[in-house]
């Protein structure tokens, strides 16, 4: 069970959340001008990285708000949570190399939320205003 630090509610069980897939997928500016291939790329093609992944989550049974999260797909370590509409934070300082071996990953389970919520605070204070949309 992941303990996910909701930016509004604090740490809650993973079962209170739903997953929204890859974050930062921009809606095409002129969808009508896309070829079928380009449209299908937008609709269906997503990254599947081994390592840090920016993804969307919604706190379904809590505040019902969407937010973004940086999660390590190998270790499940949550690196940061940040508001919809704000840019992906720089995770290089704390991220494990995406080319790293998987052998060290699975042992480090996600516990507590001190680190993510700290980074949330710093992220929120330095990024775009709330008016920015998803």
């Amino acid at each position: 069970m992941l303990l996910i630090p909701c930016p509004n509610c604090g740490p809650r069980d993973e079962t209170e959340f739903h997953y929204g897939g890859q974050a930062h997928v921009p809606y095409p500016e002129n969808p009508n001008e896309l070829t079928d291939t380009e449209w299908s790329r937008y609709l269906f093609y997503r990254e599947n990285p081994k390592g840090i992944f920016a993804e969307r989550w919604v706190h379904s049974t809590g505040c019902r708000q969407w937010f973004n999260m940086l999660r390590d797909t190998v270790s499940y370590d949550i690196k940061a949570v940040y508001k919809m509409g704000t840019p992906r934070p720089d995770s290089s300082s704390r991220a494990t190399p995406e080319t790293g071996t998987a052998s060290t990953g699975p042992d480090s389970t996600t516990t507590g939320s001190a680190a993510p919520s700290t980074s949330t605070t710093s992220i929120l204070s330095t990024t775009a205003p709330e008016g920015a949309t998803k």
């Binding site: 509610c9 079962t15 209170e16 379904s60 049974t61 809590g62």
Partner: peptide, 10 residues
């Protein structure tokens, strides 16, 4: 008061 899950229901 908190909006949460009790007995696996919201």
């Amino acid at each position: 008061a908190f909006s949460t899950e009790i007995a696996n229901i919201p």
